[in-house]
Amino acid sequence: MTQAATAEKKNPAKKTVAKAVNSLDVSDHQATVGKNFADNAKMTMRNVNVFYDDKQAIHDVSVDIAKNEVIAMIGPSGCGKSTFLRSLNRMNDTVDICRVEGQICMDGEDLYSPKLDVVELRARVGMVFQKPNPFPKSIYENVAYGPKIHGLADTRVDLDEIVENSLRKAGLWEEVKERLHQAGTGLSGGQQQRLCIARAIAVSPEVILMDEPCSALDPIATAKIEELIEELSQNFTIAIVTHSMQQAARVSHRTAYFHLGRLIEVNPTEQVFTMPEHQLTEAYITGRFG
């Protein structure tokens, strides 16, 4: 209950949602409703708890991400979407006070086992951040960075090929092929974000995590990235956090709704937006749409 109170203080704008919380005690909530497990799971999360110091940000989340699916994570601000996403490639390790409990596996391999090297993990699970963050190096160097540090290219020709392919897949090749050796930071915001996607896919990860990849972009750039996500889903498994429900509806196969650190509902996207199973999901969706 105290958590609900602090959340309300933080987000006074979300009155509708807060009301819904009051009418339904979250701490009573037992398990996620809907289809949170999958048959052909790429990643499996079981009873995941995440703490910042003694403050719990994620409560007992269990969910699967299927191979080659796009799963969208939605929910009010501060509900723990980013925290959860970042525990999937152990980016939370870089936060001193952050602690992850429970089991997170990829292809049956425990990601938090001491035997696993995070360097390898992050090569297999790539990440695209909310704000485009290209390195202050050339476009070429940006894309070539991953292959270089992981030793994926034996020759310069190989590397050139990887760079071109990645830029092509990210839909950026035509725009930048003439200026590969100019600064990546000189591109427009949308181009920078696609550069970051190209950089992430250059190491051929199995999973790509995207944390609000379009929140800094205009509608046209957003549309391009959404198109890109659809194409990428043929080869990659994608988990995307978004604040735009239209975006979730457009790009994802399944949608997960988080609320105050709990995973409330996971269902096929169509169902979530047309007939959500859980009252909270409905409150959030209708609250947003009017």
Binding site: N89, M91, T94, V118, V119, E120, L121, R122, A123, G126, M127, F129, N133, P134, F135, Y145, G146, I149, H150, C196, R199, A200, V203
Partner: peptide, 8 residues
Amino acid sequence: EAALGMGA
């Protein structure tokens, strides 16, 4: 973050 996320 970008570099760490790339597996550096």
